[in-house]
C-alpha cells in the first residue's frame, strides 16, 4: 500500500489575547489508498483542527506553525490559496457534521451541485446535470429528479447528508474528509450513512478520513485508527488490533468508559480529572495528570514506540515492555 496522505509533525497554534494556545503538537499520521482511517478523540483533542489543516482551512487566529502535509508526495502546505482551490472539492472533499447548515438554504440542491461541478470541470450544462443525477443516484437517493429540484429544508437529515456526500463525490476525489458525519443523525440513519461510506471505499477505492468521538463508529467501519488526546497522538493501530489490544492507558480508559451489556449493574470505569487547558505548555506526557499508571519517567515526553506490526503507542510503559 502506498501512502495517499502523509501528515508529518504537524503543529497548530491559535494566537489569543492570552497568548499562544498550542492545540496540536506534533501529530503525524499516514492514510493509505483505499482505506477508512479513523481519527478519534474527545472534544478539544485537536481532531477537527487537524482535518481543517489538510485543506488550509484553519480559522483565524489559528495557523500551522510547523509540519508537512504530503498528498501523493505533494506538500499541500507549500501551495498557494489559488492552488488549494483546485484541491478542495477536487482531489480532496469534505463532509461536515451538520448537513443542514452546510447547504445554502436559498438555492435548490441541484443548483448547488452544478456550481461545484462547474467550478472544477469545464463541461456543458446538460452533461453536468447528467453527472449530478447519476451521482445522486449513486448515494442511494430515491427519485433523484425530485431531489434535484428540492430546497435543502424539504429533505430529511439523512437525505441532506447523502446530498453532501454526493457533493463530495462529484469531482471524483481520492480522499474524503468526514468530520463527525453522523453525529447529528439518528441511529438508524447513521447506520445507513456508515454503510454508504464503507461501500464508497470498497467499491470505488476512495480513502476516507473519518473523524469521530464514537469508538462504536470506529469499530464498525474503520480499517485503521489513531487516538488523539490533548493535541497529540497517543496510539495508532489497525482497528481490530486497537480494540482487542489497547496499549495506551488513555485508550484503555476510553474503552472502559463505554457502557457495555456485560457490566450492567457495575460502575463504569471513568477517567478522573479533566483535559489540560493548554497542552502545548506541558513538557511531559500530556496524559500524565489523569493516568492511573503515572511514574517518574512521565515527566518527559514519550515518543511513539512501535510495539507490533501496525501498532504504535506513546507511553513509556510500552517501551519498557518491548525492550525487555
Amino acid at each position: 500500500m502506498k501512502p495517499l496522505l502523509d501528515i508529518q509533525n504537524l503543529h497548530i497554534a491559535f494566537d489569543t489575547s492570552c497568548g499562544k494556545l498550542r492545540v496540536v503538537n506534533d501529530i503525524s499520521l499516514v492514510i493509505e489508498e483505499g482505506q477508512i482511517f479513523g481519527l478519534v478523540g474527545e472534544s478539544g483533542c485537536g481532531k477537527s483542527v487537524t482535518s481543517l489543516a489538510i485543506l488550509q482551512l484553519i480559522p483565524k487566529p489559528g495557523h500551522i506553525t510547523h509540519g508537512k502535509i504530503l498528498f501523493r508526495g505533494d506538500d499541500l502546505l507549500a501551495k498557494s490559496q489559488r492552488e488549494m482551490q483546485q484541491v478542495r472539492g477536487g482531489k480532496i472533499a469534505m463532509i461536515f457534521q451538520d448537513p443542514f447548515t452546510s447547504l445554502n438554504p436559498v438555492f435548490k440542491v441541484g443548483r448547488q451541485l452544478l456550481d461545484v461541478i462547474r467550478q472544477h470541470h469545464k463541461i456543458d450544462k446538460k452533461e453536468a446535470k447528467k453527472r449530478v443525477l447519476s451521482t445522486l443516484d449513486s448515494v442511494d437517493l430515491p427519485d433523484v429528479e425530485r431531489i434535484f429540484e428540492s430546497y435543502p429544508h424539504e429533505l430529511s437529515g439523512g437525505q441532506q447528508q447523502r446530498v453532501m456526500i454526493a457533493m463530495a463525490l462529484i469531482s471524483e476525489p481520492s480522499l474524503i474528509i468526514a468530520d463527525e458525519p453522523t453525529t447529528a443523525l439518528d441511529v438508524t440513519i447513521q447506520a445507513q450513512i456508515l454503510r454508504l461510506l464503507r461501500q464508497l471505499c470498497d467499491e470505488r477505492g476512495i480513502s476516507i478520513l473519518l473523524i469521530t468521538h464514537d469508538l462504536g463508529v470506529i469499530s464498525e467501519v474503520c480499517d485503521k485508527v489513531t487516538v488523539l488526546y490533548a493535541g497529540a497522538v497517543v496510539e495508532t493501530a489497525s482497528t481490530d488490533e486497537l480494540l482487542a489490544n489497547p496499549q495506551h492507558p488513555y485508550t484503555q480508559g476510553l474503552l472502559a468508559a463505554i457502557p457495555q451489556s456485560a457490566q450492567k449493574g457495575q460502575a463504569l470505569q471513568a477517567i478522573a480529572g479533566v483535559v489540560p487547558a493548554n497542552p502545548g505548555a506541558i513538557t511531559g506526557c500530556v496524559f500524565a495528570s489523569r493516568c492511573p499508571h503515572v511514574y517518574d519517567r512521565c515527566e518527559h515526553k514519550p515518543s511513539l514506540f512501535t510495539i507490533g506490526e501496525n501498532h504504535q503507542s506513546a507511553c513509556f510503559l510500552q517501551e519498557e515492555v518491548t525492550h525487555g
Binding site: 491559535f14 472534544s43 490559496q81
Partner: peptide
Amino acid sequence: MSLSRLFLGKRGEEPPDNDFDPSLVQRS
C-alpha cells in the same frame, strides 16, 4: 460554514466546532 464557500475555495471563518475551549481564551 457555508458549503459553496468552502468548495469555491474561500477561507472558512467559523472556528472548529468543538475543538477548543473558548473559556481559555476569554478574559473576564
